[in-house]
């Protein structure tokens, strides 16, 4: 038995995988779940910075795989929520330093002690991606409502479908102004192409940038719209039916498109 291992991936870089992993992880921990975050971006680790834990790293993922330490020793406890721990990536190694099977073994160990294991996947579809996916039972694909990331997301969904089944989708950095001007794809455009279940939409929000630089994920900020969106996503992951609100300037209007956007 054990926990749910979820890989957070996208194909495209810079669309919000690490941000989403951090915020969803914190949100779940805040609601009482035991959560482990795994940074699978060996060589270009970022999860530690976003979480504000970069100064607490002693051991990392490659150390664990090589047997230089126990998993327990490499896990960094979050400074805010003790139920949350992070397994950092190595900054000095490369993606090829571990194999999918090795990753699978590490994640299996974590699943025994945690309710949720969130795996922050690197950009791309090569070895780093294969490693990150190897340990997971489910997938969340992140995209922004733009042509290039959506195509990458489509590719990734195609790759995940055969191994993990259909992933769920988060549309990140949605800007209603740009959509109105026709400069950005809207929700329906994205879903027409990707045709997977929508887990949530996170609006464009400057607070996210600030949060990243400060190491304090935005879900902790009661005022931020994106933080609230992440919290709704957390609730949906926990099984609650939370409607996706209409994202316009004054927010909070119930979406009228019914069943298509409600989580089961």
């Amino acid at each position: 038995m054990g926990g749910r291992a979820i890989v957070v991936t996208s194909g495209k870089g810079g669309v919000g995988k690490t941000t989403s992993t951090a915020n969803i992880g914190l949100g779940l921990a805040r609601r009482g779940q035991k959560v482990a975050l795994v940074d699978a971006d060996i060589g270009l680790r970022n999860l530690d910075i976003i979480m504000g834990l970069e100064n607490r790293i002693v051991y990392h993922l490659v150390d664990v795989v090589r047997g230089r330490c126990q998993v327990r020793q490499a896990l960094v406890k979050d400074k805010r929520f003790p139920q949350l721990s992070m397994l950092p990536a190595s900054q000095v190694d490369q993606k090829e330093s571990i194999t999918p099977d090795e990753m699978k073994a590490v994640v299996a160990q974590l699943k025994e002690d945690f309710d949720y294991v969130l795996i922050d996947c690197p950009a791309g579809i090569e070895q780093g991606f294969r490693n990150a996916v190897a340990g997971a039972d489910e997938g969340i694909v992140i995209t922004t409502p733009d042509v290039s990331p959506v195509r990458d997301a489509d590719r990734v969904i195609g790759l995940l479908q055969s191994s993990l089944g259909e992933p769920q989708l988060i549309i990140n950095r949605m800007s209603t102004d740009m959509v109105k001007r026709g400069d950005m794809l809207n929700q329906q455009d994205v879903l027409d192409i990707l045709a997977v279940r929508l887990l949530g939409i996170v609006p464009e929000d400057d607070e996210v940038v600030v949060a990243g630089n400060r190491g304090s994920p935005v879900i902790l900020n009661e005022q931020s719209r994106s933080g609230k969106a992440f919290d709704r996503i957390v609730r949906r992951i926990l099984g609650e039916e939370v409607p996706i609100p209409e994202l316009n300037g004054h927010g909070g209007i119930m979406h009228r498109l019914g069943k298509l956007f409600f989580r089961r």
Binding site: R151, D154, R155, I157, G158, L159, Q161, I193
Partner: peptide
């Protein structure tokens, strides 16, 4: 989906979408 390809030496009928 993106990245998927079919080659066939005849007529092809696909019920569904062919993504970019």
């Amino acid at each position: 989906r993106s990245g998927q390809k079919h080659v066939f030496n005849g007529d092809v009928v696909l019920v569904g979408d062919v993504n970019q």
